[in-house]
Structures are given as structure tokens and as C-alpha cells.
Amino acid sequence: MPDYFHGYAVVGLVAVVGVLFVAVAFGAGRLLRPMVPTSEKLLTYECGVDPVGEGWAHTQVRYYVYAFLYVIFAVDSVFLFPWATVFAEPGFGGTTLVEMFVFLGFLSVGLLYAWRKGVLAWT
């Protein structure tokens, strides 16, 4: 158990190093660079002409269905990892294979259903 925490302690230290790196870079950048803001310079860039309307414009997020699909599939797939470490243990034999194909079958049917419903095409 101590080993387990040791591993993530080092990861934590790396995160600290990363944050320090960024902080030093930003700090040094502040010292090095000029600061001459003008109102033109602070305009939002839209191909060179003055921006039209609000920056946070309404957009149609057409791929929200993909997001749903992703959540469903990803939650399913996470269970693959613990299973992957034990599925070939002696004694399971064909049973795990059947289980695997049931699992893959569910995923495939889900995907096929989405496909047939036309969710995977835009127009």
C-alpha cells in the first residue's frame, strides 16, 4: 500500500513542477514583454473587420447526440479494463469469451441502432 501512494506522490510532484514551470514562464513573460494596450488592439479578431454582434453567439451544437453516445459507450468501456486483467485466468475458459461477445454484442447493437436512426449523419 505505501508503494501505491508513493507512485502518486511522485505524480503530484510532477504536477507541482508543471505548475511552477508555467508560473515561471508567465512571470518572466510579464517582465520581458511590452504592455501598450489600445482599444483597437483589444478588439476581437474577426478576419480583419470590426466584430459584429456579441462574441458569445448562439451556435447550433449539432453533435450533442454524439456526446450522448459517447457517455453511454465510454461508461461501458471502462468496465473492460478491470475485466481485461482477469478474463484469461485459468478456469474461466470459454465462459469469458461468451461474456465478452455478449458485451460486444450490446455495444454493436447500440451503435447499429444509432446508425440506422441516422444519428451518425449530419444532413
Binding site: A28, L32, K41, L42, G55
Partner: peptide, 11 residues
Amino acid sequence: FAQKEDVVPAG
């Protein structure tokens, strides 16, 4: 890059 001005848009 380090010498360039850091512009944050007004909005």
C-alpha cells in the same frame, strides 16, 4: 514569442 505583447481581448 517571449518578447511579444500579451493581448487579452476586451470582451
